[in-house]
Write a protein that binds this DNA or RNA. Sequence first.
DNA 1: CTGAAAGCGCTTACAG
DNA 2: CTGAAAGCGCTTACAG
Lengths: 327, 327
Amino acid sequence: MSRNVTRADVARYAGVSSAVVSYVVNDGPRPVAPATAARVREAIEALGYRPNTTAQALRRGSSRLLGHVVPDLGNPLWAGFALAVDAVAAARGYDVLLASTDGGVEAEHRRIEALSARGVDAIVVTSVMARPDLVARSGLGIPLVQLNTFFEVPGFPSLGVDAFEGARAGTAHLLGHGRGPVALVIGGEAGELREEGWRAAAREAGSGVGPIARGEFSRRGGYDAGRRLFAPDDHPHAVFVSSDLQAVGVLRALHERGLRVPDDVAVVSFDGTEETEFTLPPLTTVRQPVEEMARAAVARALDPAPDGEHERQVLPAELVVRRSCGC
Amino acid sequence: MSRNVTRADVARYAGVSSAVVSYVVNDGPRPVAPATAARVREAIEALGYRPNTTAQALRRGSSRLLGHVVPDLGNPLWAGFALAVDAVAAARGYDVLLASTDGGVEAEHRRIEALSARGVDAIVVTSVMARPDLVARSGLGIPLVQLNTFFEVPGFPSLGVDAFEGARAGTAHLLGHGRGPVALVIGGEAGELREEGWRAAAREAGSGVGPIARGEFSRRGGYDAGRRLFAPDDHPHAVFVSSDLQAVGVLRALHERGLRVPDDVAVVSFDGTEETEFTLPPLTTVRQPVEEMARAAVARALDPAPDGEHERQVLPAELVVRRSCGC
DNA sequence: CTGAAAGCGCTTACAG
DNA sequence: CTGAAAGCGCTTACAG
C-alpha cells in the first residue's frame, strides 16, 4: 500500500503551514486569503488528499459514527430498520456501524460495549426484547436510544409503535367481519402489548377471545402455530397474527389444511413489510411507520434532550387493508 | 458525558508507566512481571478502562474495520450477504462498516471513497452490476474484493456464483419435466450469464427457447413480467425466473390468472433465499452459497494474495428441489 | 491573514 | 522487567 498523502504533504506542496490546510479543508475556524486558499485547493487536488477521519475523530472527540444494534438482518423488519436508520444518519453526515445480535441479551450487551469502545457518538438499539430494562446496566458515556420497544425503559429514551392500539384496531377490523372470535398467533412472552390489544378488542366487541397459539417470530414459528390452531374441525375463522413473518407461515399452514383465505379464514398481520404485498392472498396488515421511527430515533440519539428527558415516544400504526381480511 | 478513563489513569492508579499498561492489555510486546500485571489488571477493572480504538487505529495504521458496500438491504439476498459478511468478519475480530447504495454506479463509488477515508482495512463490494469494471478507477491503497459479480473484474479479485451452470441446471431440470420450451424472466441487461445458461439448456435439450420477459429484480418486476408472459392463451408451461424476488411476483401473477403451480405452470427460481421455503407452493430454486461466498470474500479482502493475484473465483450453485417444479 | 506548538490516546523502538 | 519519549494525522487556541 502506498503511504497515504497527509496534511503535511499538502502544506509542503502549497507552501503553507499545515494549520492553513486545516482552515481551508474545514472552512474555518480562521479566515484564509482567497489566493492562499486556491493554492491549497490545487495542492489537495493534485495530491489527491483526503483527511484521515481516524485522526479527526481522535482529535475532535467525535467520530461521526452512529452505532446501530439489530437482532437479525434476515428478518425483513429489522433489515427495514437498518436501512431506514442508515438513510437518516447519512443525511446528517453520519455513517453507521451496524452490529447484529442473535436476539439474546448477552450478545446485545457485548455489541453495545464494542460499539462504545469503537468511539461511536451515539447508539440506537433496535431491540427484540419487549422489556429490555437490562440494558440499563451499561453506563457508557454516550446517548443510547431504544428503538422498537413496547414499554418504558427506565433511564433511557425509548421509542416504539403503538402496539396496543395497532393490535386492537387490527382485531376490531377482523371482528367487524362477523367471523366470530378472533384467534391469536404470537410469541412466547405473555402479557405483551399486542396480546393486550387483541384482548381489548374482544372485550369491546363483547365477543369471547379466541384461542392463542404461541411460536417463534419466524415463518417456521407461524407455520407450526398455524398447524396447531387450525387442526380441529371447529377451528377459528379469523386470526390476528402478531408479525408478518409468522403470517406467511400461517398462510402456508392454512393452504396445506385446505382452508381458503379469506373465504374460510380471515387473516390480519402486524408489521407491514413489503413481503405482505405479494403473499397469496396479499395480507391486510398493521403497518409500523419504520421510516418515521428511524428518523425519530436518530434525532434523539444525535441531539439528546437536556438531562432527564428520557421519555418514551409512541408512534401510531396504520391498518393497510388488502385481501386477506375478506373486505 | 463523563470524561473517559484513559491509559494514563490506569497507569497512575497502578503506579506504573503507561507503557506497561499497554504491555498488559496487548499481552506484549515486552514481558511484564506477574505481580505488576496483576496490579494493572486490578486498576483496569476498578476504573472500568477500555482502550480507545480510535487512538489504536491511528497509531497502528489499522482499524480492524471492514467496509462492505451493498445495493439494498430490502432485498433478502443482499441482507443475507450483509449478515454473512458480518458473521465471518466478527469471527476474525473485525467490525463491519456497512454502506448501502441505491444500486447505482455513482453511489457505489461515493460509498467506496467514503469507506476508504474512514480508514477501513479492506472493502468488500457486493455489487448489483453484472459488469462493474468501472469500479476499477478508484485507486485506493487498500484491498477491494468484488462479491457477487458474474464476470472477471480487471484489476480486482472477484468472486461469484456459477450463474451459467446454475441457470443451465435449473432450466434442464424444468425441461426434464416435459412441459415444452421454458420461458425466462430476467433483468434488463441482455447477454447475462443466467440468460446464457438458460439458452444452453434449451440447446442441449434440442427444445426451442421459450419467450423472455424482462423486468426489475423485484417482486413487482416479476409480477409485471409474469402478467405479460402468461396473458396469451398459448402461454408457456414452464418458466425459469432469475431471482427469488421476481419469482414471488410471478407466483402472484399466475395465481391471479387462475393458473396453478406446478400443475399448469412449473417454476424454478434463482438465489435460494429463505422466503422461497414458504411461498405457495414452496419454490424449487437454485441456491447461491451465500455463507461460503462471504467467507471467501472476507478471506481474500483480509489476506490479500501477493500482488497480481486478481483471479476470479467461482462457487457452485445448488439446485434445491421443492414443489413448484412439479417433481 | 498565517504559523509554531500542544495534545487527542495509543504503541513501540530504545535505553536502562 | 520497566520507563521516558517519539509519533500516528489531525485541530485549535495562542501569538504574531
